[in-house]
């Protein structure tokens, strides 16, 4: 039990970082109504770009921005495969994801793993978030605002604020309409191909930003760091929805719920690791099972436990 509580701040930090990725997944899966599998590749792209630029002494904010930009490009690739080439969205995402495997290795100089040397004091001081800061703050060696939960929390709020603004604009509304009803969107003069590509770009930009933050946090980027990311993202979206849908109605709060969903996911995983002696190789299986169960429940509820529909139309139909 003690080890679980000790690991809690780290789990929450990781959950917050993955939460930004999950918000990206929310944009495609919930708003655009597309299951985008690019995520598994673009997450690592963000991490790889960040680590390489960091090693080249590029300032951290610039490196984060570059990682975001790389994610935009990954989304653009999927978007063009889907709209311009007419390939189904799922397959487009898989194709980009596969291609990104090579691209990511190339970014990392054909190595599967590149790390930041955090034993070098100069490197450590440049980082914005690091696993090490969790204990540094706890030991009082660092002010509280350097704690990853605070830093990534600020990132999350900033991301939510920008998205809240964006989806309230004309362009953002057009994007939402595209996902809600493509026919209606086109009848209103919206080029749904453009909005789809834009949505995929923003989504993957956020996913890559999340990957950059994770590689910074764990001080390395790994070619397989994004494997199963889409499942974690979906888990966060669904957990957030199940737990908070009655509480949160507002769009910004829905995004916050996704972030909370990712935190809950990581805390649960951490609990499983700490409180049992399970081989961690089984975690992916557990994740897949959790997501499958959460997706099944609403479907079965709707099929067998739905309330009978009242007969007769509304009086003012």
């Amino acid at each position: 039990m003690g080890s679980f509580i000790g690991a809690l701040p780290g789990a929450v930090s990781q959950g917050l970082i993955w939460g930004i990725m999950a918000i990206g997944v929310y944009i495609t899966y919930k708003i655009l109504d597309v299951a985008d599998l690019t995520v598994d590749g673009s997450f690592c792209t963000g991490g790889a770009v960040f680590v390489m630029l960091f090693a080249a002494q590029v300032p951290v904010p610039v490196a984060l921005l570059a990682a975001f930009g790389a994610g935009l490009l990954a989304g653009l690739a999927t978007g063009l495969l889907h709209t311009f080439c007419g390939i189904p969205a799922i397959l487009s995402g898989i194709l980009t994801q596969l291609g990104l495997w090579s691209v990511n290795l190339a970014i990392m100089g054909m190595k599967a793993n590149v790390s930041i040397n955090v034993n070098d004091e100069a490197n450590l001081n440049r980082l914005w978030v690091s696993l090490r800061f969790v204990s540094s703050v706890a030991d009082g060696k660092m002010p509280f605002y350097r704690h990853p939960i605070v830093v990534v929390g600020v990132f999350t709020i900033a991301v939510i604020a920008v998205l809240y603004w964006f989806f309230g604009t004309e362009l953002g509304s057009a994007l939402r309409a595209t996902g809600a009803n493509g026919n209606m969107a086109r009848a209103q003069g919206i080029n749904t191909n453009v909005t789809k590509v834009l949505g995929l770009m923003i989504s993957n930009g956020l996913v890559a930003l999340s990957g950059a933050l994770l590689s910074q946090y764990q001080s390395f980027a790994d070619a397989s760091m994004g494997r199963g990311a889409i499942v974690i993202g979906l888990a966060a979206v669904i957990i957030g929805e199940v737990v908070f849908s009655r509480l949160f109605r507002n769009f910004a709060l829905n995004l916050l719920a996704v972030s909370f969903g990712a935190i809950i996911y990581y805390v649960v995983i951490q609990a499983v690791i700490s409180l049992s002696d399970i081989n961690t190789n089984y975690l992916k299986l557990i994740s897949a099972a959790i997501v499958a169960i959460f997706l099944t429940v609403p479907y079965w509820k709707g099929r067998f436990f739905s309330k009978p529909v009242k007969r007769g139309g509304a009086a003012n139909a």
Binding site: S173, A174, R176, A180, N181, M184, G189
Partner: peptide, 21 residues
Amino acid sequence: AATMQIEENLALAARRGKGRT
């Protein structure tokens, strides 16, 4: 668009054929 509000639907229609900014 079912998941959007009445006023949001109207606002989308009010901008039919115009650039979305």
